[in-house]
Design a protein around this nucleic acid. Structure first.
Lengths: 230, 230
DNA sequence: AGGCCAATTGACGAAAAAGTCAATTAGGAG
DNA sequence: CTCCTAATTGACTTTTTCGTCAATTGGCCT
């Protein structure tokens, strides 16, 4: 009643790259929450504060937007994965020379778990997209996992098997189960956040929680792996 | 060309309860795979082998069908959860009398993990629906978890805390983290099956895998929890 | 200062999905 | 055997969502 002036179009700023970035970010959230077929272009446009026609201008169609979201993230996480493995294995070249002490193993495990938890805490949205895609859409996530993360998984298992062969870890350790367990413990609070926070009201992204979580997982893995208590 | 007889309507059988059951089953799969907004009534009808108009006849609308799917499952899994806790605690009434031996604890842990893994292996679809719903739709899953599974979670944590107070488990065990870890290890292969089978080609529902998985998780939890190696 | 290019819009059309309804017919009750 | 109820269908309408297009306008270049 006072100053109802709907005629003023409220000066629109223009910035192509910024707008595109906002759209991609909004799209990542929407796809992560509802999957491909459940995502609504209207929601994405509204979250980004633009008309949905703009999506078609930049990304042609829904599929184009989806691929762009994936492309933006997949390269990064693959590189980060190999990076983690790299940093953990400066000892790799010299194989089966001297055995690692329990202290060495503890340091290795702690470094690994830290990287793993940080990884999942950071890339939750993208990983939820991959999970959706594995169910409904299909090909992209499957091929990505087989081509990029499976080699990393195999690499970790191979290192564990060598450690077991050298007697550095308990010989009833089954490497694949152990890695799956570590990944499960690390990713669970972030991929299942809505559930976790309902049974245990914590901020799973708070620094204190992250630190606690890392300690707990490292301790668990080490207990399982070390021949005797330290 | 040979016997193109599309005029024969191919005698349709009729069975209300059976058809309804088929619809609910198909709906569970569809909702689990794509969430509420991503699910298509057409897909559900086709999977059940009926016209989609029949869905409206039995369940009024999409929302009605969805609620019916949830209702069919939620009651069952709640009861099953309390059942598991019940069976694990015939010792509950007498509190802090005699302490449990490591062998007792091992038996308890193995029974718990077995129930947990079987639970997740069995109810994967429904739990994926709850996960979707937590993101997009909202209320039903949240209220269900807070009202029904949180008390179960608290109960387990309380028992663990008592055990720690009695010195039966290591005193650096944080009960909530431990339970979250156990749940994570147990559910991961089933809630993330498409991912797991891409990095490690196994049939996660095969009896051998289930047995291995249970042993591995129990061993991990026990290593973490027991004051010394057995 | 003026004009051009592209970012952005708003309205429109097409396709897909949800929901409605009258008309068929299987199968049980009398 | 017959009739009558209800399960089931197929075509229809409505609503939602995706995609297109011409028109507008902000920022930049000269």
């Amino acid at each position: 009643m006072t100053n109802a002036a709907p005629a003023v179009p409220a000066r629109r700023e223009r910035n192509a790259v910024e707008t595109k970035r906002r759209l991609l970010e909004a799209a990542e959230e929407e796809f992560a929450a509802k999957g491909y077929s459940g995502a609504r272009l209207g929601n994405i446009a509204r979250a980004a504060g633009v008309q949905h026609a703009l999506i078609h201008h930049y990304f042609v169609d829904k599929d184009g937007l989806y691929r762009e979201v994936l492309a933006r993230g997949l390269g990064a996480i693959t590189a980060e994965g190999w990076d983690i493995l790299e940093r953990l294995a400066p000892q790799r070249p010299r194989r089966s020379k001297k055995v690692m002490s329990p202290a060495d193993i503890r340091a290795l495990a702690e470094a690994f778990i830290t990287s793993l938890v940080d990884f999942y805490a950071t890339h939750g949205a993208l990983l939820r997209i991959l999970r959706h895609e594995a169910d409904e859409h299909g090909s992209v996530a499957r091929e990505f996992v087989e081509a990029n993360v499976r080699p990393q998984f195999d690499e970790i298992c191979a290192r564990l098997d060598e450690m077991r062969a050298r007697g550095e870890v308990r010989d009833d350790v089954r490497s694949r189960h152990l890695v799956i367990s570590a990944v499960a413990m690390a990713c669970y609070p972030f991929l299942e956040e809505p559930f976790v926070t309902r049974v245990w009201p914590v901020d799973v992204h708070a620094p204190e929680f992250l630190a606690e979580r890392k300690r707990e997982i490292a301790e668990t893995i080490l207990s399982r792996v070390l021949p005797s208590r330290t």
